[in-house]
């Protein structure tokens, strides 16, 4: 299982009654997550709208100021406003997360579809291949990739995409197999539909709908991973206003200026939590629509 499978609840066993479970209605958490996401997207597209200042503007006189009405999140060692920098960093962080997720989903889709559609021999081969990839757990595949192609934003993004691909592939394969063997596909066969018609009408829509959920959940995780690489000095490098890189820069001043690390990290956490909440919300809606 991967982080995503856990988050999407795909490991759950079927159960008959859930009478003791509190009914899930429209949640406050989902609403908050939605609001924060709107803020993030605005900040990513029009950073000046939420933070008019210059993210790289140096002001040595006001270095290391703690949070105040003038500098909501404080300032860093060069007097740059942390709030401005965090807001302006949203774009690159979201972009990295989205691109990495798309790469992972894309590769996963190719591998998963090959395994799920082309019969037992291909399935066996792809499965063995995935098993081998799973033996490079977590960041390992990403680190190996960076070793080969060198550090940097682009490599880190591709590396995260690559590292998440096996998980996606396995989920997609499982989904395809379960849809293919479902009773409604059989019912369509009995109605005399051709394999092509069944693929278009039943198999693809029912396989791809959950991908939307996976993608939403995945963006949050991808941002966490990519910023971890930046933090380790393998992704985006300071003074770029990228969350992981900002955290890394703040590391030296942990003792004196905690806000330099705290707020960029807070944004990473909030983004990941929002993605999870939204992904779950979408999943619930798909299931009970």
């Amino acid at each position: 299982m991967s982080d995503l499978e856990i988050q999407a609840g795909l490991g759950r066993s079927p159960r008959a009654n859930r009478q003791h479970r509190p009914p899930r209605r429209f949640g406050v958490a989902e609403a908050l997550a939605g609001l924060f996401t709107i803020f993030l997207v605005t900040a990513a597209l029009f950073p000046a709208l939420v933070a008019p200042g210059d993210p790289l503007g140096i002001d040595p006189l006001s270095a290391f100021q703690s949070p105040s009405p003038a500098h909501w999140f404080g300032t860093d060692e060069s007097g740059r406003d942390i709030y401005t920098r965090v807001s302006h960093g949203t774009g690159s962080s979201l972009l990295i997360g989205t691109v990495a997720t798309l790469i992972g989903l894309g590769l996963g889709l190719v591998l998963g579809t090959l395994a799920g559609m082309l019969g037992p021999i291909v399935d066996f081969t792809v499965n063995r291949f995935l098993e081998v990839l799973f033996a490079f757990p977590g960041l390992l595949l990403a680190l190996l990739f960076i070793l080969i192609f060198g550090p940097g934003v682009a490599t880190a993004t591709v590396a995260v995409g690559l590292a998440t691909a096996p998980g996606y592939a396995r989920i997609i394969r499982g989904q395809l197999l379960s849809v293919r063997s479902s009773a409604f596909v059989e019912a369509a066969t009995v109605l005399g539909r051709s394999p092509g018609q069944i693929l278009v009408r039943h198999i693809l829509p029912n396989t791809l709908a959950p991908l939307f959920v996976l993608g939403t959940l995945g963006i949050g995780q991808a941002i966490v991973w990519a910023s971890a690489l930046s933090y380790l000095g393998l992704g985006a490098a300071p003074p770029a206003a990228e969350w992981g890189a900002m955290l890394s820069a703040g590391r030296t001043y942990i003792g004196s200026a905690w806000w330099m690390s705290f707020f960029p990290g807070l944004f990473i956490v909030l983004t990941a939590v929002s993605a999870t909440a939204l992904g779950r919300g979408i999943e619930r809606r798909l299931r009970h629509a």
Binding site: Y231, L247, L266, A277
Partner: peptide, 18 residues
Amino acid sequence: EIVAAALPHFWLATALIV
């Protein structure tokens, strides 16, 4: 659980150290 699962190691470590 959701928040804990979303905590990046590097940030959690920093917060704990502070």
